[in-house]
Design a protein around this nucleic acid. Structure first.
Length: 416
RNA sequence: CGGGGAUUGGCGCAGUUGGCUAGCGCGCGCGGUUUGGGACCGCGAGGUCGUAGGUUCGAGUCCUAUAUCCCCGACCA
C-alpha cells in the first residue's frame, strides 16, 4: 500500500472529549472512526489489524477441533424464553425490534441459546460427541455506559465457542485444551507476558470460571497476581479458601488493574436441560449434554494492545498483528530516491512481505511522525543520504533501535 | 440509572457586564521557496454558533426544554 493511496488520513490532534488512549491513537492514526458513543467504524488499517487478530484466534480454535459457524443477528423470542432470558427485567442489555407482521425479534447480545437450539438438532448420540463450534459475530448490547474507546462498546465483534461433551471429565479435558490454546493466542498476539490466567467467579452455573486478564490501566478489573506461577485471582473471589486451593500465598501476590481479554466457563447441563438437549449413551439411556463457553473479544484485545504497548509517539503493533510489517519512508522528491524506494517496495512485495510506502510529497518530520503514530514494527528510510550506502537504515518501532542492514538481512528480519 | 463537564467551519479552540460584517491555529485549494523529526511566504474557499422555543430594539452570550458526547459511580448475568 502507498500512503498516498490510503483512503484515510492521520491527524495531529485527538478528538476533543476522547480521553481513552486507545481511542485517541486509533482515531488519529486512521484505524477507526467513531460514529457514536460505543459505536465504531473499522477503517482499512483497523480492519487489517482486526483480521490479523481474528486469523490467529481462528488458527488456534481450528487446531483444537473447533468448527467455525456464524449465527444470526436476529434472534427469535421463543429461543430465549426457554431460558427465561427474553425478559428485559432479567437481561437489561437487549435491543429489540419488530417485524412487519408484528413478530418480536431480538438483536443478538449473546448466542448461547441459539447455539444450543441449533446443535441439539445435529447431536443425538454418544457417537456424535465431543464437538465444538465457534464463530466471529457481532454482539449488540444496550450498555448503560459505553466507555474506554473500543474496549467497551454497544456493538462489538466477539469470538464465542461452545463445547458439547458427554461427561464432566470429557468436558474438563476440552476445557483444558482451550486454556492452552488461549495462552498460545495471547502469546502470538504479543501480550502473553502480561496476560494472566485468572480465577474468577463462576456466575450462575459453576463455582469458578476463568478469565484471561491483561495488565491495563484502562481496564475494569482488579486482580492479584502470582508472578511465579503466572496466574491471577480476580478480587471478586479473593478468599482464603481460593488461595489455599491454588496453593498460592497471600503475601506473594501483587495487585494490578487489568482488562478481561478472554473468558472461559462451564455450563454443566444448565443450558442443555431447558432445551432438553440430550444424547443417547451406549446403554440407550438419555443424558444431558455437558457444555462449556469460551469467549474472546478481538476488538477489545486490539484496544488493550494499543493501551498496553503504545507510547508517546503513537501505536506499537506486535509483529503478528500489524497491518504492515514494514513502513518505507522516502524523503524528498529526488528521482533517484523515488526510484530506489519503488525498487525496495516492489522487491519486498513480490517476496511476499507486507509493506506500506509513504510516497507522499510531504516533509520528513511529518512522515516520521506518521510512521511512529501508525506503529508498524519496522521502518526503513530511503533518502539521498542512504541511497549511496550499501545498507538500509532500519528502525525498530518498539525499541527505537536503528540497524544497518542489507536487503537480505532486512528480509530475514521481516521473516521472523 | 445517579453525579459532574462539554457542544462555535472538517479537527482543536477564543469570543468580556447581551451591541456592528463571529475570530485564531491546524487541515483544505492555488502560486512560490523548501525537504533527516509534524518547514515557510502570499492569496483563497469554508461556520449562523447542537436543536426547539422564549426574553429583548438587538442573543454565540440571558431563560426553558431537549439531543448528543466525555468523565466518575452503579451495572456488566
Amino acid at each position: 500500500m502507498r500512503v498516498s493511496q490510503l483512503i484515510t488520513k492521520t491527524r495531529k490532534e485527538a478528538p476533543a472529549d476522547e480521553t481513552a488512549k486507545n481511542a485517541q491513537l486509533l482515531i488519529r492514526a486512521g484505524y477507526v472512526h467513531k460514529d457514536a458513543a460505543g459505536v465504531y467504524v473499522w477503517l482499512p488499517l483497523g480492519r487489517k489489524v482486526l483480521n490479523n487478530i481474528i486469523q490467529i484466534i481462528r488458527d488456534e480454535m481450528d487446531a483444537i477441533g473447533g468448527q467455525e459457524v456464524v449465527m444470526s443477528t436476529l434472534q427469535r423470542k421463543e429461543v430465549w424464553e426457554r431460558t427465561n432470558r427474553w425478559d428485559d427485567e432479567i437481561v437489561d442489555v437487549w435491543f429489540k425490534t419488530t417485524y412487519k407482521n408484528g413478530t418480536e425479534a431480538g438483536l443478538a447480545w449473546s448466542h448461547e441459546e441459539q447455539m444450543v437450539d441449533t446443535f441439539r438438532q445435529h447431536i443425538d448420540s454418544y457417537k456424535d460427541l465431543p464437538k465444538a463450534a465457534y464463530q466471529f459475530q457481532n454482539k449488540l448490547r444496550n450498555e448503560t455506559r459505553a466507555k474506554s474507546g473500543i474496549m467497551r462498546t454497544r456493538e462489538f465483534i466477539m469470538k464465542d465457542m461452545y463445547s458439547f461433551a458427554r461427561t464432566e471429565a470429557e468436558h474438563k479435558e476440552f476445557y483444558d485444551k482451550v486454556t492452552a490454546a488461549y495462552l498460545r493466542i495471547f502469546e502470538r498476539l504479543g501480550i502473553g507476558e502480561s496476560t494472566y490466567f485468572t480465577v474468577a467467579s463462576g456466575g450462575a452455573f459453576a463455582e469458578f470460571s476463568h478469565e484471561f486478564q491483561t495488565i491495563c490501566e484502562a481496564g475494569e478489573d482488579v486482580v492479584y497476581i502470582d508472578d511465579e506461577k503466572h496466574i491471577a485471582i480476580n478480587e471478586e473471589v479473593m478468599r482464603d479458601d481460593v488461595l489455599k486451593n491454588l496453593g498460592v500465598q497471600k503475601d506473594k501476590l501483587r495487585k494490578a488493574k487489568t482488562a478481561e481479554v478472554g473468558n472461559i466457563f462451564s455450563f454443566g447441563t444448565s443450558k442443555s436441560e431447558p432445551y432438553d438437549f440430550v444424547y443417547t449413551d451406549e446403554n440407550g439411556e438419555q443424558q444431558f449434554v455437558v457444555m462449556g463457553s469460551y469467549g474472546i473479544g478481538p476488538a477489545r484485545v486490539m484496544g488493550v494492545i494499543v493501551e498496553h504497548m503504545g507510547d508517546d509517539q503513537g501505536i506499537v503493533w506486535p509483529t503478528e498483528i500489524a497491518p504492515y510489517q514494514l513502513h518505507i519512508t522516502s524523503l524528498g522528491n529526488d528521482d533517484a530516491v523515488i526510484a530506489e524506494a519503488n525498487k525496495i517496495y516492489n522487491n519486498l512485495i513480490s517476496a511476499g512481505f507486507s509493506v506500506i510506502w509513504d510516497d507522499r510529497d510531504v516533509s520528513a518530520g511529518e512522515k516520521f511522525a506518521d510512521a511512529d503514530l501508525m506503529g508498524m514494527p519496522y521502518r526503513v528510510v530511503v533518502s539521498k543520504k542512504t541511497i549511496d550506502s550499501e545498507a538500509y537504515e532500519v528502525k525498530v518501532r518498539k525499541t527505537g533501535e536503528v540497524l544497518q542492514l542489507n536487503l537480505d538481512e532486512l528480509k530475514k528480519l521481516l521473516a521472523k
